[in-house]
Amino acid sequence: MSALTARGVGLLVAAVVLLGVGFRFAYPELTLLGAAAGIAVGYALATAAWRPRLEVTRSADPDRVARGEPAAMTLTVRNTGRLRAASLVAEDRCGDRPVPVPLLRLRPGRDTTVRYDVPTHRRGVVPVGPLRVTRRDPLGLVTLARPYGGTVPVWVHPRVHPLHAVPTGAGRSLDGRVDRVPHGSITFDSLREYVVGDELRRVHWRTSARVGELMVRENVDTSLPRIVVLLDNRAVAHPERRDGVAESFESACEAAASVVTAAYREDLPVVLLMADPEPSAPDATGDATGHGGGPLDRLAAARLADDDVIDATTARLRRERLGDTLVFLTGPGGRDDLGAVGALRAAYPSVVVGIFGATEPAPAGTAGLVVIDAPDGAAFAAEWDGVRRW
């Protein structure tokens, strides 16, 4: 993006006026001054238009962190030109914050490296980049800014508070323990591509012949409890703001991350849902660390939505019966919807409700629900481990 500075605009207007007056009234001196001004503007445009050949690489260390943990970005700029050294004004973009990058007399074939901290004091996805290089002519008439390199996201996950207890749901083994079977053998769940080490007796030959590659059956053990975490991301459920941030929603995200992480630690199936689902985010969980669009990545990117679709969400949960334990995490504005959530006990034998930031206790009509009133995620974890009904 190029633009004339105020000085450049004034000089260009003066050039046009001087040339017009000089030619109109035959004043060669004015014509000469106008021509000189026009040449100066043209020189400035030509100088600023020179595009340096820069190669920009960046890496985040690490690219996924919990809120408050340190993260750094390493930016390397290399001058791939062959003739001219680059002396430029550049800045990188780290979220909403510009980061100056010195590029003074960067010779051809040389590179410079800058390392700076990425802010992680808030949950979210911090976009870093692109590098913005600004060129100015010596007279200060023209500025030209160009982007270099791409954008790298840094995922700031919610804090995870350790949970020592997990729901056992409706399915138990005869000795009272939850059997942990990573690849169950009772009920068919889905088909996936064959990987080295899979048993050939699990190959689904008819589908393999149709798609042209080996496909194997993925089974699940129905005796394992299945946990459904429903995060209430409706704006009406979190009405209070502090510096533009709904602290009750941040606490609910921390609680959701804690439950999901505890379920993965115990090898229990878990599904993370949003009350107002994001179109681009799948409902199925991924890697526990958040890689590949996993639940922690989804929690980092979660935002409050203006739509109030709790009735449609509860209807879907009742219809699909995604598990046997439902964990509903909401804010002060979601207390009035506990009746609709409690009606799901016919489909989910165990229903746990976490209410964050409420100044009053849970209303009547919550019989049969495990209700945890907590000011933040840490208090939720402490009360969660104190529940005796797992």
Rank of each mutant, 00 (worst) to 15 (best):
D111W: 14
V9T: 09
T285Y: 09
A343W: 03
L338N: 07
V229K: 02
T76V: 13
R115V: 10
T143M: 09
T187P: 00
L174T: 15
P138T: 07
L338G: 12
R389L: 14
L191N: 11
T168V: 12
A362S: 15
I39C: 12
G95H: 04
G333I: 05
L103R: 05
P147E: 07
R172M: 11
D297N: 07
G149T: 01
V178C: 02
D61F: 10
L45I: 03
Y194G: 04
R51L: 05
D96M: 03
G244F: 13
D324S: 07
L369A: 11
E199V: 02
L191M: 06
A347C: 09
I372E: 09
G357N: 08
T313K: 02
R82F: 08
P98L: 11
D297V: 10
A340G: 06
A288R: 12
H183V: 09
E360T: 03
N233M: 05
E320W: 08
T143D: 07
G176I: 10
Y264F: 15
L33M: 11
G140Q: 08
V341L: 11
G323L: 06
A66Q: 14
V260E: 01
V228F: 13
T313C: 01
S59C: 04
V128L: 15
S190R: 15
L231H: 08
D63K: 00
R58I: 09
V220F: 13
P361E: 01
A346D: 10
G81F: 03
T134G: 09
E55H: 11
V245F: 05
M73L: 11
W155H: 12
I372V: 10
R110C: 10
P349C: 01
A301M: 08
A284I: 03
E247M: 02
P295C: 14
A48T: 11
V142R: 11
L33T: 02
V41G: 02
A15N: 02
A340Y: 00
G323C: 08
A252V: 05
I39A: 15
G8K: 02
A60S: 14
R265I: 04
L144Y: 12
A14E: 06
A284N: 05
I355R: 10
Y264W: 14
E250I: 15
L224P: 10
